[in-house]
Each structure stands twice: as C-alpha cells, then as structure tokens.
Amino acid sequence: MKTKITFALLFFSYFFYSQNVSYVHLDSIFSAIPNYKSNVMKIDSIGKEYQKEIKSTKEQWESKLNTLLKPYNVKENEDINLIKSRMSAIDTSKLSILIDEDKLISKRAQNYDLVLKTMYDSDVKPLINKVTICIEQYAKLNKIDIVYVIEQLSPAIAYIDKRKNITKKIIEKIAK
C-alpha cells in the first residue's frame, strides 16, 4: 500500500513540475490595444446615460401613480382589482394608461440593454477574442501548458517568478 501511495505522489509531483506555466497581466494587454479602452468607456458612458434616463422616467411614473392612488388609501399588498373597484371610471382608465406606460418603460430598458450588448459584441468582444487567440497561439508555439491571468490570482499568490510573465510578448504579438 505504501508503495502505491509513494508512486502516486512521485507521479503527481513529476506531472506538476513538468508543466510549463506562465502568466499575463490582461489590464496591460488591453491598455496596449488601440480603441479598447475608448470603446469600453463609450459603452459604459452610454449605459450610465440609459440608466439615468430609465431611473428618471420610472421616478416620474411612480409619482404619477402615487398621485392617482393617494385619494384611495391603498393598503400595502392590496390587490389591484380591489383598488380598481373603489376607483372612479376616469381614474381606472388613468391607471390602465399608467400600467401600459410602465410596460413601455420596461421595454425601453430592455431595448437599451440590447443596444449596449450589440455595441459590446461589435466593439469590445472582437478585441477580447483577439487577445485570447493570441495567448493561445503563443502558448502552443512555446509549449506552455497553462497561462494564468494574474489579476484573478494575485490575492492568493505569495510569490511568483517574474520570468514567467509573458505580457510584453503578447503585446508585441498583438501589435503585429
């Protein structure tokens, strides 16, 4: 039994020591790519504007709803049909319009999300894919078994050999 355990430990230690491992700083790579940072900032800025618009519209809608419902002393968790039964015909129509307006606001928010996703897919994702392919090609060419993204590992690493950093080589390869 001891022989099997010893053999297994030797095998796994050989396996781990025989691996060629490197790492990259993705932030540095992305910073070196023209348009990457500006594209991300543009999408982020547009997204913030959309969020601000939706939030403002939703607040206006809630104000209209509260104004409409105020005379009816609506209780928490009260059923909408019960509220409608106490409302005048005009207020019931106004409530229906507000409900439709809420659906339109939700639809507008979904459309904004779709616009942002489309922008991301056309302006940012191809650049990320280019980096991924470049790292993969470099690793295969140089017989590297594993390439880590240091930003994801750095809190858990006490020491790392700076000679294993291939960030500059990836940047050079992407620049070509």
Rank of each mutant, 00 (worst) to 15 (best):
I171F: 00
V147F: 02
Q110D: 15
V124T: 01
I135M: 06
I83F: 08
S106K: 09
D44F: 07
L127V: 13
I174T: 02
K64S: 08
N20K: 09
T67G: 03
R108A: 02
D145Y: 03
K58S: 14
S28E: 14
K52W: 01
L116Q: 09
S106T: 07
T67A: 11
D113C: 08
F11Q: 12
L98I: 01
R108H: 03
Q19W: 05
I97K: 13
N35S: 15
N111E: 10
N35F: 14
P155E: 09
K94A: 02
K117N: 10
E172C: 07
S93I: 11
D123W: 03
N129D: 15
N129Q: 15
L127G: 05
N142V: 11
D102I: 00
L95F: 11
P34Q: 05
V149E: 14
L114S: 14
I166S: 00
I133F: 11
L69F: 13
S28P: 01
D102S: 09
Y112W: 03
G47W: 13
D161W: 04
Y120W: 12
Q152A: 05
Y112A: 06
M1F: 12
L10N: 12
Y120Q: 10
S154D: 15
K2T: 07
V74H: 09
K143T: 06
I5Y: 06
T118D: 15
S13P: 07
I166T: 00
R108M: 06
Y17Q: 08
I170V: 12
V147R: 00
K164S: 03
L104P: 00
S56C: 07
L69M: 09
S63P: 00
V21H: 02
K173T: 12
A89S: 14
I29R: 01
K164I: 02
L9E: 08
R86N: 04
K162S: 14
